[in-house]
Design a protein around this nucleic acid. Sequence first.
RNA 1: GGGGCCGUAGUUCAGCCUGGUGAGAACGCUGGCCUGUCACGCCAGAGGUCGCGAGUUCAAAUCUCGUCGGCCCCGCCA
Length: 586
Amino acid sequence: MRKSSFRTHTCGDLRAEHVGSKVTLAGWVRRARDLGGLLFVDLRDRYGQTQVVFEPGTDVFEKAKELGQQDVIQVKGIVRRRPEDQINRSLPTGEIEVLAESLVVLNESKTPAFPIEDEINVSEEVRLRWRFLDLRRPEMQKNLILRHRAAQATRNYLSSAGLVEIETPFLTKSTPEGARDFLVPSRIYPGKFYALPQSPQLYKQVLMSSGFDGYFQIARCFRDEDLRADRQPEFTQIDLEMSFADVDDVLDLTEGLMAHIFREVLGIEIERPFPRMTYSEAMERYGIDKPDTRYGMELFDLTDFFRDTDFRVVRSAIEDGGRVIGFRVDRELSRREIDDLTERAKELGAGGLLWLSSKEGQLRGPLAKFIDREKGLKLLGGEGKTALLLAGKKEKILEIGGALRIEVAKRFGLIPDGKWNFLWVLDFPLFVWNEEEKRIEPAHHMFSMPKDEFLDYLESEPLKVVGKIYDLVLNGVELGSGSIRVHRRDIQEKIMEIAGIPAEERQKRFGFLLEALEYGTPPHGGIALGFDRMVAMMAGRESIRDVIAFPKTTKGQALYEGAPSDVSEEQLRELHIRVEKQNSSS
RNA sequence: GGGGCCGUAGUUCAGCCUGGUGAGAACGCUGGCCUGUCACGCCAGAGGUCGCGAGUUCAAAUCUCGUCGGCCCCGCCA
């Protein structure tokens, strides 16, 4: 325990064995209960809570009457056993109390905007405005301490594995692909800008070229995109890269890291090896590239089943080259529930939602009269079940089905607690077709190596090329993404060319990487894991804001310190920046 | 960029649909009483630009439009 000249023990230390000893405690007044002739104070710090009792007839007693919540005080006193019938079993320190002999008010506190307690009903806006008070709540302290321990476990494990922690720059070069960059104007070079890194991707590859063999960093990343519960403009990744590594090497190290973190921090043993699934299998079975395997309701294909149906909507969808897919829910859905889901399906871009159920051996739902009864019952597999079906264009319909499957699972509480279903999704395509811009673009990023058997198809059929790319998924959340990288300039240039980047551009933006690839860069690969998401899941929180000390709101504001903010004319002048004033009167 | 929910005492909310009554409750806060509390109890009290702006109306917390902010979803996030 850290030494402190203000206290002999923390507020979580004292037990029956300390009875009779003279102690000094320091902490925050959680609550003062003034009984008139007797006064109790619950004194709290990060470590716990201890009851201090003030008895009448002394100056100390009179002074204690003035105490308010969240005052910081120092108390000297004698530890004494509480009367047998006054023991508080719900408190580790509940067997004892400290009889105060002296009291020093180190600092008074104004009345906080909300109670400093775990179970509070306060808007997040107010919590963020008063973040330092919010973080005084034991629950938030627990979250951040859990985060700290996960970071420690990460450092220990990866260091033991021989990886070297190396910091990479925050002031770096803007590369317009991917997310929007945060820019930092250069004072020395008018009109030029640094960019905050979206990830240390290029640097870590160059470090492999330098021969470090293994690198890691708990790295801050910046992306100027719209925010969500699980997305902040700045976030943290466990970033790692290894030389002379192929897919299995990275997956194996990552699994080891996850197992270590979960063991050290939560005391949970997770099963290894993690299951693996290809991207195309994930899309077929779950309609998403990050399947939540904690529950079933897998998608099935009914295109052939309905090929000759008289149901016009379905038939025309199939004739247009589309598919019919569906999944089965093990319960009956009310009219209202189906309407809600239909609306959701339409929001997601479906034409509509079809359903089928049965009652006393008779099919029900809009499809009932178009399906042979026996076949329909077989499809449902029993009473009390509902099949939800979608028809439409191939690519789109699986995604909608996948999203609807998740919606159903959430809405009807079909997701089991206490499961940690890790999953590797492998073999992502290198390129995808962008229908809006009518061009090929990288599906992931441009530095991933094609699988050996696809190298020859790079030029002829780029859209068929599968890369050595892998995503780590936990309970349906994408925790991380990585790949084996291209380590040869000729292949790298080819991929960039296919992605539509002209030679001159390639040199301008990625010259420093391409150059390194010409000087003996070894085969290498790695992964980046979303640290905030991982910690949030470990802490059982929905939002990563609950595991970040000072997060931004969904509109990118820092409510406590008040950023972004205006800057002085002088600052702008130095940076050679003129701001166009928004016309607020119009 | 689009959609949804929300904005009324310090906090969490009711009131709004169907305009007009002194804008109310709980917790917190302040004062008083109380010697074994631990959500202490009892009594009394203070506390509100109804987010902001405009409009409709004799009259707006309430209706309309705009705007700002919080949360969630879609797009976006290599």
